[in-house]
Design a protein around this nucleic acid. Structure first.
Lengths: 160, 160
DNA sequence: CATATTTAAGATAAAATACTCTTAAATATT
DNA sequence: AATATTTAAGAGTATTTTATCTTAAATATG
């Protein structure tokens, strides 16, 4: 097993991860779906997983969660798939992220200090509260449809 | 073992984690040290771990990493401990976070999209680049000494 | 009705992260 | 010199996250 020091030494190339893999994959799939405005109803998960280079089963799980939360609807059997229950024009990034990452997503202390809040703000509280608020606002005013541009395809389709 | 769906259902109360535990604990310890301006030289790790409610061995490891990176110096034996090599007035949050989380900490794509960058910006790129830049700037202009206020003690000392 | 297709659900496995334990090395004190 | 104290280093464990595998349920098609 790798020692912690080695581990500590190794991780000099890691990036900040605001959204977990779950959230990233879920968002990518929804963005992919929203980008194909025309072919409305049901998208094939396997095809989607191949185009987005995400594990089929893992993606299925993630989308299943979004179905259970009422964002998506699924249809089994031949020509089945997964589709929007609510039109992508009405789904904000905040909704998706909160569904996948948790309702309290935007309620964190930047430094993870115990007991930090309005009553006992930590030294970074005010600064972070403002920045986080802008993030939240952006996520709440941006819909999946907003992201469905040509720019998008460059990033969603790895294989193309 | 817990099923993924259970797991997906459960995590509805999770918060965004910008900094990992490693970074949080390291920062907390350094803030604690910087707050005691007077007693300068060496801090006892065990005492610190008790006051901050962080595992002693884990904290030792983390500080060890910071020592190896030249931010701290250690002294073994009775009355030994860990202390600043560079004065806390000269250590920025960015330095600490990059040492603990990785040099590329501030170089992420918000949506984790493959290939996102200046040449192929994703739909959120410009927005996030600006917000992230403000975060980076704040971290680079805030020193450990800046955080050593009375406010701080409320959060650092769990037991008190 | 039989079969193929597709998502649902549950269990399992692998990897990453978080944390613990044991021993070694350094240093002070007696 | 012997002992106690304290960090260093390595190995080990636990938990969480990420990913895979297998079987079940639903539905279309022949």
């Amino acid at each position: 097993m790798e020692s912690l020091v080695m581990y500590l030494c190794r991780q000099n190339t890691l990036k900040m991860r605001v959204i977990s893999r779950l959230g990233e994959y879920g968002l990518r799939a929804l963005m992919y779906m929203a980008a194909q405005k025309n072919e409305s109803t049901y998208f094939n998960i396997r095809l989607m997983s191949q185009e987005l280079d995400i594990s089929f089963h893992f993606l299925t799980k993630i989308l299943q969660g979004l179905t259970q939360r009422g964002l998506l609807q699924s249809y089994r059997g031949p020509h089945g798939g997964i589709g929007f229950l609510v039109p992508p024009e009405q789904i904000t990034l905040a909704t998706v992220v909160k569904a996948l990452e948790g309702e309290d997503f935007f309620h964190n202390c930047l430094l993870g200090l115990p007991g930090c809040g309005e009553r006992q703000p930590c030294p970074m509280h005010v600064f972070w509260a403002e920045l986080r608020e802008r993030l939240r606002t952006e996520f709440e005013t941006t819909t999946l449809a907003d992201l469905g541009t040509q720019t998008l395809e460059q990033h969603l389709r790895l294989k193309a």
